[in-house]
Nucleic acid binder design. Structure first.
Lengths: 232, 232
DNA sequence: GGTCTGTCAACTGTCAACAGTTTGCCGGAT
DNA sequence: ATCCGGCAAACTGTTGACAGTTGACAGACC
């Protein structure tokens, strides 16, 4: 953060837009961690721009749920309480259950065969290589959402996934649920290929419930601290 | 738009935040209609502020999907194509189906009794007064979302509802589906009280599918123009 | 008459400076 | 030693001015 020129801005578009994507990457990369404050003057000068465009980028990122703005105090990389993470997983579940229904109705057999192949290949690669299959897990969900054929839904779901990813970055990562997740993916694909929307939705929910519990546990929240701080 | 002082800004908070809510209301009120451009200098001077805070508010409203920003051309109140409206109804359906499931699991009997009473009262008021029950329809969905007990989901769903409301403002309004909608609400409540999540979700989807068709028809889109402009 | 080109006004993108608020520090009183 | 009040530095909120881009209009040319 202190080295003069820092990361460089891409070449086209307005400063505001370029800065938005750049800062988003810095947040999701972990270059700036949850709780950190964004010092407008130093960050702006590090990027070689003035505070105006930076502030506009900050407003948008706050709208995406990646930053929290406190009046007269500044913009902070968002931190998450147990309850908020729980709510984010609800959102994700809502999106993907419905996406699964849409896939059942709209996807071609070829699409589903490709998804099936993807899961199989991942399984093979994992049983031989043995590495952490988290990126493949994310890919599966990205593919599922894309097959639903709803760009708005896809964007919203990815935004929620980004928030979850940020929340998970608060812990020392990698709960290694890889094998179980893969089996659950296979269940989902099977239901999709059988064109039974209810089953697919059910398996999606089951899968995400497991992921939710795993994430909350990795973050050190006991299983029902998520209902702790009632706001209403 | 041309009367000097225009609508006044509320008293507390930053100009940026106040302007955001004020402009949002202007958009949803129809004070500025879909397709209209926001002239930064004239709007800022009408609000008695400078362009900086206004631009920040514009960024946030664009993130909410109420404005579309085009580089070097300005911010326009968003317009919607048939496909986008269809996608928004998908979003809404995803939210409310899952909300219904959550209500089945979490709401107290008293909560559901109150919701039931609300529907009955609306029905009576409508059979006597006979007026358009659209505000009551909205209230029902707002209550349902609130009972789900997930603030994040509630906010996102209301944001989508606002976009749909804006989209519908492009037509000369009021398809008067009031009576049928009310019956469908009653079906949903019955399923909730029976604590059968699958049925509740099913009725929610059915209800929103009807609302979707009604909205698309009111906007003059033939029933499947919504799949018209493939982007992918 | 129609089309193309050059010029100009309007507006957005960006910047640098000013003003008000918050926060941390320092000194003094208890 | 601790707590309180006030001062000063740092930072955010806001402003007004400058620069680059866009779209339209007017005039020349085919």
């Amino acid at each position: 953060m202190s080295d003069g020129a820092a990361t460089e801005l891409t070449r086209d578009g307005t400063f505001s837009a370029r800065t938005e994507t750049l800062v988003r990457e810095m947040i999701l990369d972990g270059t700036i961690a949850p709780g950190d404050r964004l010092n407008e003057v130093s960050l702006a000068s590090a990027l070689g721009i003035s505070r105006g465009p930076l502030r506009e980028a900050i407003q948008r990122l706050a709208g995406e749920g990646l930053l929290t703005i406190i009046s007269h105090r500044g913009a902070f990389v968002r931190t998450f309480e147990a309850r908020e993470i729980d709510e984010l997983y609800d959102m994700r579940t809502a999106y993907e259950m419905y996406a699964a229904r849409l896939v059942c109705e709209r996807a071609t057999d070829d699409d589903l065969a490709a998804l099936d192949a993807f899961v199989s290949e991942t399984a093979e690669a994992m049983s031989s290589g043995g590495g952490g299959s988290y990126p493949a897990d994310r890919d599966f969900h990205v593919r599922l959402l894309h097959l639903a054929g709803n760009a708005t839904l896809e964007r919203a779901a990815l935004e929620t996934q980004a928030q979850i990813s940020l929340a998970r970055s608060m812990s020392a990562q990698v709960p290694v649920r890889a094998k179980a997740a893969l089996d659950e993916h296979a269940d989902i694909v099977a239901a999709l290929q059988a064109r039974s929307a209810d089953d697919a939705a059910h398996f999606v929910r089951q899968h995400l419930d497991h992921a939710r519990r795993s994430a909350l546990a990795a973050l050190g929240f006991d299983d029902d601290s998520r209902r702790g701080s009632e706001t209403s």
